[in-house]
Amino acid sequence: MSLYIGLMSGTSLDGVDGVLVDFWAGAARTMSAAYVEFPQALRDELMALQAPSPNEIEREAVAANQLAEIYAGCVAQLLAKSDMKSADVRAVGVHGQTIRHRPELGFTRQTNNPALLAELCGIDVIADFRSRDVAAGGQGAPLVPAAHMALFGKEGKTRVLANIGGIANISLLHKDGSVGGYDTGPGNVLMNAWITRHKGAEYDDNGAWAATGQEVPGLLAALLAEPYFALPAPKSTGRDLFHADWLDARLAPFASARAEDIMFTLTRLTAVSLARAIAPHGSDAVYVCGGGAYNATLMRELQAELGEAVKVQSTDALGVPPNRVEALAFAWLAYRFGERQPGNLPSVTGARGERILGALYPR
């Protein structure tokens, strides 16, 4: 066996997904999966760290230690479920929690304490995957298209994998073997912020609240006027751009709109921005992963935008549950590091060339 663990906690700040994967002979067989929810206090702190704030260096370090402990708990669950020991696993690939992503300034920062994680779980840890790509002039994101092609590409078929987490990104898996991809814009981040403000909920379960609303005239166009949407690839984004203040500035002329109508329009924003990115590539099918795959209203709107000729379905159709795909990708990136093989795609990130991604923290 060639066992690797992948851990992913994303922009939605809900918790960490983990998978234990056997990459023997280049195949990918998931041995176990686990999810550990973040405590509310940690969610609040990670959200606060998205913007400059007092004593943020110390606060980030403390949050990183808490994250490492949660990551270690997820690793322990994965081992227990598969009846494996830490010595059986070659490495843990962990993305960390993005709190700043500024490739235009030459840096990206994912909060984590990989040294502590290696100490706690007794396994080599590979972390900080984005930085080498940024150092090579790339966006540092999205990094998953290379993994998506290796795991889900099919000769003679053009497929799109759409990851709808806090931010949405696409992997364009072309039938000729070429790969593209980029962040398309907000996924769940604005919808989650809006429902938390008005309902106290963390997310719109199955899109039920959005389904009670209708599109606010003029608002979708105002949101889509954001210059990011018109930028050519390669490009990447995050909470540095799409946050509550960004939304409030654009909602000001629509103060009389009902909250549920704004919620539906935000759902439409994600669907339309994704569809506009996908449509020009003539895909045979679109497979959705991330939390957005569980939002029936969003999935319905995305299907409507793309039309009947393109089938929209979750990655369950490919044999991988939507909430495991990103963790699987980071297990693959750790595997690539272990084989000393590149993990980025210059065609996606804009880097000057292929690079081995990640930094090793030995057990």
Rank of each mutant, 00 (worst) to 15 (best):
S12Q: 09
G18L: 00
Q66N: 09
A41Q: 09
G15K: 09
K81S: 03
L20I: 07
A76R: 08
H95S: 07
S82P: 04
G96D: 02
A51Q: 10
A27S: 07
K85D: 13
D22R: 06
V62Q: 15
G93I: 08
K85M: 10
V19A: 01
L67N: 01
G96F: 04
A61D: 03
Y35F: 15
Q40R: 07
F38K: 03
Q50P: 00
S12L: 03
S53C: 15
S86H: 01
G93M: 13
V36C: 14
D22W: 13
L67I: 08
I99L: 15
P54Y: 04
V16H: 08
A72K: 05
G93Y: 10
H95L: 07
S12D: 11
V94M: 11
R100W: 03
H95Q: 09
A68D: 10
D83M: 05
E58L: 15
Y71M: 14
A41D: 14
A25H: 15
R90L: 07
L20S: 00
T11Y: 09
L78K: 03
L42Q: 06
S32R: 04
V19R: 09
E37Y: 07
G93T: 12
E60L: 08
G93S: 10
L105T: 11
Q77A: 10
V62I: 14
F38H: 15
